[in-house]
Every structure is written in structure tokens, then in C-alpha cells.
Design a binder for these strands. Structure first.
Length: 243
DNA sequence: CCTATGATCATCT
DNA sequence: GATGATCATAGGC
């Protein structure tokens, strides 16, 4: 069943324990659906109910994982303790966020692909639209600590539908204000980023399939999403670059 | 709804 | 030097 955005949502505000993340990504991923990721920044609070995630495996196991060939500077956080954010920059303009999984030293995680913004829609929208040079000064999009949306995501005069605010991994990162400086942030402490128990989804409502935009390991069904949820991103196979 | 294309750069080979 | 865990836009139906 599709959850209507306007329906009241009853969630648990208890934070998830670090031990939740210290398991195989393929176990953690489906159990993340329905959980709530919160980021309190100087500009305000945005909370996202996760509706779509992907598991990425340990070195040597999963050719699609950033850790497949071992540790590098970029993926170093994935080899750190579980329950931290791994945020990476890609395509020259986008950030995407993962939860680090498995015990420290392993190198695995879960990509956060999509969700529903359940708090801070106004701030998330402002981030998406980016800083706009208003005639009378800077916008209300948050302060300098908040990362502005990439210029290309602006729709001058257009409006982003609430359902699209976190529909896709780079959009989700923009909505939550995640960028380079959030790589390595702990989600299981007293910091500004937390994961709440939320409203875990019954397994009967979870669907699985191949991961989006993945070339190697393209048939591994490690994508998990809430069946029928309108905030789940569309499936797209990997496309080699044209020449 | 759908498919095609370009943007843009850190990272790895 | 090639590529990518993407997205916005343009155009067709």
C-alpha cells in the first residue's frame, strides 16, 4: 500500500544502536527502510524517512562496491567504525551518502537512495533550489555551514514537488545538507546526525532487485525499497558513456 | 509517460 | 586519460 504523504506518521524517536550497523550490509539494508535520518544544522532540522537503499559488499566480494579493490583515501571512512556516514563526490557535481556497516576495518556499507522528507520540507526545498541572489540580499536557505544545492539543480521559477526532494541519492544528500564535510560523521552519538528507529517496514512490503546504475555486479539484487512508495526512485540500468 | 544527452571533476589506472 | 552507486533538461508520444 502506498502511504499518503499527508497521513500522520507515528515513529519511534529512539536512536538506533551502533550494533545495528555492525552487520552485513545485505542484512542492514532492508531493516533501514522506514527508519528516520535526522540532520540538525544551523539552518534547521531536516528528517527523512528512508524508502530505498542499496547494500555494497566487502573488498573482493562485490565488484560494484567502492571498497572492492581495498582501501583508498576516498573510501577510508568505510573501513572505519560502523554507524558513520560515508559521503562521496561523483560525476563532478553530486554527493551521495552511505551508512558504514560491519565491524571496524571491514569496508562495507549501505547507500541511501531515497526517502520521504518528514520534517524540514521548507529547508530541504531551499537547499534544492540553491542560494538565490534575491534583490534585497541573501536568501534564507540556511547559513554558510549549509551546503547549497549544485547550481544545476536549480529550477528558476520552478517548484520541486515534495515527493521529489529526496527521490534519488544525490537529491537525498542535498535535502539533508550532506556534502564533503560530512564524510566520516558519526550517526550514533550526540552529534547533529542521528538515525531513529522510526517505523520499521514489514518484510512483506519490501521489494528487492538489482542496484541502480551499476555496471559490475549488475545482477546482484541488493537494492531494497518499500513497495509502492511514491518517493522511491525509478530504476535505471548502467549506461556506458558515448564517445 | 518515455528515451537521449550533456554537465563536470575527483579518483584511479 | 577514462570513468562514474547522477540529475536536469529537451524532445517524442
Amino acid at each position: 500500500m502506498t502511504r499518503m504523504s499527508a497521513e500522520p506518521l507515528t515513529v519511534s524517536w529512539r536512536p538506533l544502536d551502533r550494533s545495528f550497523f555492525a552487520r552485513r550490509p545485505v542484512e542492514v539494508a532492508p531493516e533501514l527502510l522506514g527508519r528516520v535520518l535526522v540532520h540538525d544544522s544551523p539552518g534547521g532540522r531536516v528528517a527523512v524517512r528512508l524508502t530505498e537503499v542499496e547494500a555494497y559488499g566487502v573488498p573482493g566480494e562485490d565488484p560494484a562496491s567502492h571498497t572492492y579493490r581495498g582501501q583508498t583515501r576516498r573510501n577510508a571512512v568505510m573501513f572505519g567504525p560502523p554507524g558513520h556516514l560515508y559521503v562521496y563526490f561523483t560525476y563532478g557535481m553530486h554527493f551521495c551518502a552511505n551508512f558504514v556497516c560491519m565491524p571496524e576495518g571491514t569496508g562495507a556499507g549501505v547507500l541511501l537512495r531515497a526517502g520521504e522528507v518528514i520534517a524540514g520540507v521548507e529547508l530541504a526545498t531551499a537547499r534544492r533550489n540553491g542560494r538565490r541572489a534575491a534583490p534585497d540580499g541573501p536568501s534564507e536557505a540556511g547559513d554558510a555551514k549549509d551546503s547549497a544545492a549544485p547550481a544545476r539543480s536549480r529550477r528558476p521559477g520552478g517548484v520541486v514537488a515534495p515527493r521529489d526532494l529526496a527521490r534519488g541519492p544525490a537529491r537525498l544528500a542535498v535535502a539533508l545538507g550532506f556534502a564533503r564535510e560530512h564524510d566520516g560523521v558519526d550517526c550514533c552519538g550526540d552529534g547533529p546526525v542521528r538515525v531513529l528507529e522510526g517505523a520499521p517496514v514489514d518484510p512483506s512490503r519490501i521489494r528487492t532487485g538489482p542496484r541502480v546504475g551499476v555496471a559490475n555486479g549488475k545482477d546482484t539484487p541488493w537494492r531494497f525499497w518499500i513497495d509502492g512508495d511514491p518517493t522511491v526512485s525509478p530504476y535505471r540500468p548502467h549506461q556506458p558513456r558515448s564517445r
